[in-house]
């Protein structure tokens, strides 16, 4: 019923339209609340005193006990894990964007056999879930001495995201007009310079799409981290949290919740900074092709 307003159907009087419009607002607000509710509950939990049972008194009013945050921070060493996750994410994103954009440019603008084959391989490999090559990769990583190193994990995460990035960048570059590049070549730019000086700056919207689609996944990576980051000093955020939480077996929710809140904050901040560009990045060519 509610969707019908989109069409502004014939013979629907204004009264009816208003009701439907209001109804749609109501539904959207309810969906948004449903999506945010668990965060609210996490925050309430994080602000309770250790002694308080969750269901005592009014469960929607916490004790505002802020000591949980420094306690959780110290005991879980989450700060160190966040630094690791941050370095891995930054390194992997840099690799994905630069290598992906270079490959996208070559595929979109130089249609030789090698580039076309590479593109086809990437397209096919997009269908292979990462977990499948993780076990044989483990053997390779041992020989490269890359297990329990940040650079090893960075390369693994970048590799898993590369096909999709090449796909997005290729689509985006194909949609760009050729005239700009031709003019630059006439002015004496080499093709390499054209890429670095003209194409790369134009890629901004698709870069933020690639960052949002992959960045959070890399920060939150658990499936590969479980294999390649077993050393306590090299734990990333999910690894550190999972080890830290296991020792409580669900007994101290206040401190667990506070630690989880600390781990979520940087992600939310980055998301709020990038989210404006996300839609533009997706609509401007990223999904064409």
């Amino acid at each position: 019923m509610t969707f019908r307003i989109m069409n502004e159907g014939k013979g629907m009087d204004i009264e009816m339209k208003k009701i439907l419009c209001g109804l749609r607002y109501l539904i959207i607000i309810m969906i948004s609340l449903l999506c945010l509710a668990p965060f609210g509950i996490l925050l309430i939990l994080a602000l309770n005193t250790p002694r308080r049972n969750f269901y005592e008194g009014n469960m929607f009013v916490p004790d505002f006990y802020f000591q949980n945050f420094p306690d959780g921070w110290k005991q879980s060493q989450i700060g160190h894990a966040m630094l690791n996750s941050g370095l891995i994410t930054a390194g992997a994103i840099l690799l994905i964007v630069i290598l992906g954009a270079m490959a996208g440019y070559a595929v979109a603008r130089c249609k030789n056999k090698f580039n076309q084959t590479v593109y086809l391989i990437f397209l096919c490999c997009m269908m292979v879930p990462g977990i499948i090559n993780t076990v044989p990769l483990y053997g390779l990583m041992i020989r490269l001495h890359a297990v329990n190193t940040l650079w090893g994990m960075t390369c693994v995460c970048a590799t898993l995201a590369i096909p999709q990035a090449v796909f997005v960048f290729t689509g985006f570059i194909r949609a760009l007009p050729m005239e700009l590049e031709e003019a630059a070549v006439i002015d004496g730019c080499s093709q390499m310079q054209v890429f670095w000086k003209i194409i790369l700056p134009l890629l901004k919207p698709s870069v933020s799409a690639v960052v949002i689609l992959n960045g959070f996944g890399i920060w939150n990576n658990y499936a590969q981290a479980a294999f390649f980051l077993q050393d306590r000093a090299k734990h990333n955020v999910p690894q550190a949290l999972s080890i830290y939480f296991q020792q409580f077996a669900g007994a101290r929710w206040n401190i667990m919740a506070a630690t989880a809140v600390i781990a979520i904050v940087p992600v939310v901040i980055v998301f709020l900074l990038f989210q404006k560009n996300l839609m533009r990045g997706l609509t401007d060519g990223a999904l064409k092709g």
Partner: peptide, 9 residues
């Protein structure tokens, strides 16, 4: 520039 897909690959 024709070989710019090489590093990614």
């Amino acid at each position: 520039h024709q070989f710019m897909a090489v590093p990614a690959f």
